[in-house]
């Protein structure tokens, strides 16, 4: 993608990020009534993060084996409710160390 096209894409991204933030605060000022729409909106972040993570995480390091090891460590640390930074660093170190062992 050319830089110019990338720039346009970024402006569009900024707009579609800003619109959901600003509309209710500036314009609607009303509450959504339907419990189904409310539930849907509430489930969206979890569904989206799940779909963003899997299966792409397995291809995030350039090596399937190191990525799987990193994923397992991230799952274990998160299950133990470690903080975001601890989980991320744990996954990075695992990938780095398993990478050194394999290659």
């Amino acid at each position: 993608m050319s830089l110019q096209k990338a720039f346009v894409a970024i402006i569009i991204m900024a707009l579609v990020t800003y619109i959901p933030r600003v509309m209710p605060l500036a314009i609607f000022r009303k509450e959504i009534k339907s419990k189904y729409i409310k539930s849907f909106l509430q489930y969206v972040p979890y569904a989206v993060l799940g779909a963003l993570t899997f299966p792409d995480i397995f291809y995030s390091t350039g090596n399937l084996i190191t990525a799987i090891c990193g994923t397992i460590v991230a799952l274990i640390l998160s299950y133990k409710e470690k903080s975001l930074v601890v989980v991320a660093i744990g996954a990075i170190l695992t990938v780095y160390i398993t990478g050194l062992m394999i290659l």
Partner: peptide, 24 residues
């Protein structure tokens, strides 16, 4: 390169850290 390759997993690791505790 080995370290920046490993950092590719960081974001996904954080996503996992965000969704697992509430899902539990």
């Amino acid at each position: 390169v080995s370290l920046s390759g490993a950092m590719g997993i960081a974001l996904y690791g954080m996503f996992i850290a965000i969704i697992i505790p509430p899902a539990k």
